[in-house]
C-alpha cells in the first residue's frame, strides 16, 4: 500500500513537524526575552498560528480527522485572546499617558 509517494509524504510530514517545533521554540524565545509587552503579544500570536499549523500537520501525520476541528476551535480562541491582549495593552498605554505615571507598563 505504501508506495514511493507514501514514503515521500511520511518523510515530508516528519520534517514539517520538526520545522514547526523549532519555529515554536524560536517564537517562545522571543516571548521570554521580548523587551516590550507588545513584543510578547506578537510572539503569542505567532505561537498560536504555529500551533494551528502544527495541528494540521499532525492530522496528516496520524490520519486522525478530528484534529481539524481542534485546529478550527483553537484558531477562534487564539484570535479572541490576541484581540483582548492588544486592546488591554492599548488601554494601558492611554491610561498611563493621561494619568500621572509616564513610565511603560
Amino acid at each position: 500500500m505504501m508506495g514511493m509517494e507514501g514514503i515521500l509524504l511520511k518523510g515530508a510530514t516528519e520534517a514539517v513537524l520538526i520545522l514547526l517545533t523549532l519555529a515554536i521554540l524560536f517564537a517562545f524565545i522571543r516571548l521570554v526575552i521580548g523587551p516590550d509587552p507588545a513584543d510578547r503579544i506578537v510572539a503569542l500570536d505567532l505561537i498560536s498560528v504555529l500551533i494551528v499549523a502544527y495541528l494540521g500537520a499532525f492530522s496528516i501525520y496520524t490520519g486522525e480527522k478530528a484534529f481539524l476541528d481542534v485546529a478550527i476551535a483553537y484558531a477562534l480562541i487564539a484570535f479572541l485572546g490576541t484581540v483582548a491582549l492588544a486592546r488591554f495593552r492599548e488601554r494601558l498605554a492611554k491610561k498611563s499617558r493621561n494619568g500621572k505615571i509616564d513610565g511603560e507598563g
Partner: peptide
C-alpha cells in the same frame, strides 16, 4: 500525495521563516 507533500513542505518552510524573522528582526 506528491502535491500534499509539496504544499506541506512549503508551508513548514514559511512558518519557520516567520519564526526566524520573529527572533532576528530589529523592532516590534
Amino acid at each position: 500525495e506528491a502535491i500534499t507533500a509539496i504544499l506541506l513542505v512549503a508551508g513548514g518552510i514559511f512558518a519557520f521563516i516567520a519564526s526566524v524573522g520573529m527572533l532576528r528582526l530589529p523592532d516590534t
